[in-house]
Nucleic acid binder design. Structure first.
Lengths: 241, 241
DNA sequence: CCGTGTGAAATCCTTCACAGCA
DNA sequence: TGCTGTGAAGGATTTCACACGG
């Protein structure tokens, strides 16, 4: 059904999965700019990766390209859309309506396309009742009562101390994917996916590298031949022990 | 100076670097809760990784532990603080004062410790002049004039269309590390670090996995023995061709 | 002739298993 | 005895190099 030749596909390597959304974005951009085909070299340049990697990645989805020509932008978009589930409907609940939660609600591109905001949860009585993005903020119980179906994705933007409880409630509501912005590793049942976005961690990783390159530029440069690499986000988790 | 035995250290593996902030957070928490030592097993449980991985990671920083006992929380924190540059001062400029930018300015834990907000840039005249987080929003020229020194880190929260220009300006100001929230791969000079946080990409990766596990649970479960893994963020980039 | 698709090689990371020290 | 530190094994991903097809 979803494999290269209709057979049961083995799971894609996680680094490949993380690059697919980038390829999708680039293909959409190329199409908007009028080019109907693009080569692995084009994709590689825009994504900041090796061309061989692009070909290997895309070949895992099937034979999408044409030898001597490249990839048809529209076909590539279709294939990636299908694989990333962009044709489906993904109801999203956000827990923690602070600054970050509000930013996500209002962010362009966050609730476009397949992802649909269906619930806003907060514990603070001062926030409950407020209307944002066409939804009224409620407690878990209130939101659960108003949901038509289980949310597919739960977004956690609470303080760290409330994150595990938020995860528990979201899983109880039926969410099987969590996007956690709180600086806490979550315990979730097997089969529940968790992705972590930790802003202070990002700063620390940057300052680690900055410390190192400073020290090196004082000596001799040691980072020779380092290819510009765009995105290899592999921070994911599958629940269970 | 920074190697295990005072010798020139080879660079740490990138996945290891991405885990160090987590170990740091866990050690701080343990210390706050009164335990002065913690084992690799403790760290592994809280971080959601394998204990062997913890030991391998930490052994790369030197011999921090004591056989038969574990790691001294305070010493571990010191070592990680030093390595991640937490003793230094990291001036940060934010470009793009929309919802996300404001969320970062107000977020607890984002501008605590080593990271210090020194400038806010936006192109919108309606936003320029506004005061947030103790800083007045200005154009690049205005902010540049008020800076005491070059910013170490630039945070980009502009729309995608403005991200490359923001990166150029930040590099011109002297920033050597960029944290980019815009869905765009940036071109930067060699030696400039870029990390990407792309929220819509996170959702797409989640929906990819959700699609797959749904299809599998209809058949037979194939994800057996998958260890819970916390964070392997490896999305980083070094400029240059 | 050009660019994809792909075995094979090389590299990187993780996990194992245990020696060694407190 | 208990837990770290680490060589070696194992697994996964990246890169190479080129056969193949349009």
């Amino acid at each position: 059904m979803e494999g290269p030749h209709g057979m049961t596909a083995r799971p894609l390597p996680e680094p490949t999965v993380a690059r697919l959304p980038i390829y999708l974005r680039i293909a959409e951009e190329h199409l908007r700019h009028g080019s109907t085909t693009l080569s692995s070299e084009d994709l590689a340049r825009d994504a900041g990766v090796n061309a061989a990697k692009v070909r290997k990645d895309l070949s895992l989805l099937g034979s999408l390209g044409t030898r001597g020509t490249g990839y048809d932008a529209a076909s590539l978009i279709d294939a990636l859309d299908a694989l990333l589930g962009m044709a489906r409907d993904w109801p999203v609940v956000i827990v923690g309506i602070g600054n970050l939660g509000r930013a996500l609600i209002n962010a362009r591109g966050f609730f476009t396309g397949a992802y649909r905001l269906v619930g806003l949860v907060d514990a603070d009585p001062a926030v409950i009742g407020e209307e944002l993005g066409g939804r009224r903020v409620g407690t878990f119980a209130q939101v659960a009562a108003e949901l038509e179906s289980a949310p597919a994705i739960g977004v956690i933007t609470t303080p760290a101390s409330a994150a595990q409880e938020a995860a528990n409630e979201l899983v109880a509501l039926g969410a099987r994917s969590l996007l956690n912005f709180a600086p806490r590793v979550l315990e979730v049942p097997e089969g529940v996916q968790v992705r972590y976005v930790d802003l202070s961690m990002e700063l620390q990783i940057l300052s680690y590298h900055a410390t190192r390159t400073d020290a090196q530029s004082a000596g001799l440069l040691a980072t020779v031949g380092v290819e510009a690499q765009a995105l290899d986000a592999v921070d994911w988790a599958e629940g269970g022990k």
